[in-house]
């Protein structure tokens, strides 16, 4: 084929496209799931008018958001006001690029050489996710500043303080897994979790690192600004936090970014602690089904948490992050290091 286009290249481009659209669709599905679960928790029906059992509600929501008028405060910083939601959404999409979601595949023999089921295979993948997550803060902070509104600014500042505080515990829970697997590549970390102990307990890092998993999930909820840690948009005190002044598609982009970040955190948790695409009953080539099931379960957990736990107070959140979670993750790291030294990796 001309221009150096190989079947592998086409396959890779297809994967990238699939990941991109799957992420967008996952946001729509999550909106529906969130509303239905919320309704279930609160003993309501939830959306039921648009489509069967309200399944087309997200489409109606998107249509509504597109039709809405785009408003901008008079004294806002025009460039940054419009750049901030784009930055948020870009960071959210980019972080998923290095997340592998299945074993290497030849697409049922279509290709000569197997390709990785990930948009990009980077050997420092875990750090790339960490780096892009830390870039995502800017979208929120800049939105808060550029809106030139006190609620937005306070929301943005809270968000940056919160994300910086929890990023440390987040990173330390990564580090413990990295020590166990001896690799920064998510694919290799997943492959370390193949197989079973005693023939039936899967060798997931969840069972070696229960504390690490807890820290990761907690810090992950804080990183994605979800309840019970959703201070950047605490309605009772800040109207809507950093996106108070946003409307129409700019608002939709923050929304999209939040849901995609949830998907990414769940996918990374699946790869790090839940054995990725390894699972019983299914052949290796269909492992991505296991991956989807695990990510779905974690996302359900996320939504469940939101409608179960009340929001913390801001000082409680900071105290919890610095005085409980951080010492816990340092101790976890030390114990893991001692264990790796004693038992061998």
């Amino acid at each position: 084929m001309p221009f150096g286009i190989t079947p592998e290249l086409i396959a890779q481009i297809t994967i990238i496209g699939v990941v991109f659209f799957a992420l967008q669709i996952s946001a729509a599905v999550l909106v529906y799931m969130e509303r239905k679960v919320a309704a279930f928790v609160q003993q309501r029906y939830g959306p039921y008018l648009v489509g069967p059992r309200g399944a087309l509600q997200p489409l109606a929501d998107i249509l509504k958001l597109i039709m809405k008028e785009e408003l901008r405060p008079k004294s806002a910083d025009t460039l940054l006001f419009y750049a901030a939601p784009v930055l948020s959404a870009t960071a959210a999409f980019a972080a998923f690029a290095v997340v592998p979601f299945g074993a290497d595949t030849t697409f049922f023999g279509l290709l000569d050489r197997p390709v990785h089921l990930a948009a990009a295979d980077v050997n420092v993948g875990l750090l790339v996710i960490f780096a892009i997550t830390s870039m995502g803060v800017y979208g929120i902070v800049l939105a808060g500043w550029a809106s030139n509104s006190k609620y937005s600014l306070l929301g943005g500042l809270r968000s940056s303080a919160q994300m910086i505080s929890y990023e440390i515990s987040y990173g330390l829970s990564f580090a413990a897994v990295i020590m166990l697997a001896g690799s920064l590549s998510l694919r290799e970390i997943v492959d370390h979790q193949a197989g079973y102990w005693f023939g039936f307990i899967p060798q997931w890092y969840l069972f070696i690192q229960p504390v690490g998993f807890f820290i990761f999930l907690t810090a992950g909820i804080a990183e994605t600004n979800r309840a019970p840690f959703d201070f950047p948009e605490a309605e009772q005190e800040l109207v809507a936090g950093y996106h108070t002044e946003y409307s129409s598609m700019s608002f939709a982009m923050f929304f999209l970014a939040e849901y995609i970040n949830m998907v990414t955190v769940s996918a990374v948790a699946t790869d790090l602690f839940l054995g990725g695409w390894h699972g019983p009953f299914l052949p290796e080539s269909l492992g991505w089904i296991w991956f989807l099931i695990k990510v779905g379960a974690l996302l359900f957990f996320y939504v469940w948490m939101r409608w179960t736990l009340p929001r913390y107070r801001y000082d409680q959140l900071m105290a919890f992050g610095w005085k409980v979670l951080l010492p816990l993750s340092v101790i976890n790291l030390l114990v893991t290091a001692a264990g790796v030294l004693y038992f061998g990796a």
Binding site: A131, Y138, G144
Partner: peptide, 26 residues
Amino acid sequence: APFVAVIQIIVYAGAIMVLFLFVVML
């Protein structure tokens, strides 16, 4: 040097500059 590249982003662009921005905004 991908490791150095990513650390550059995490430490400088991610952590230190957020604090800069924080201070400028405050």
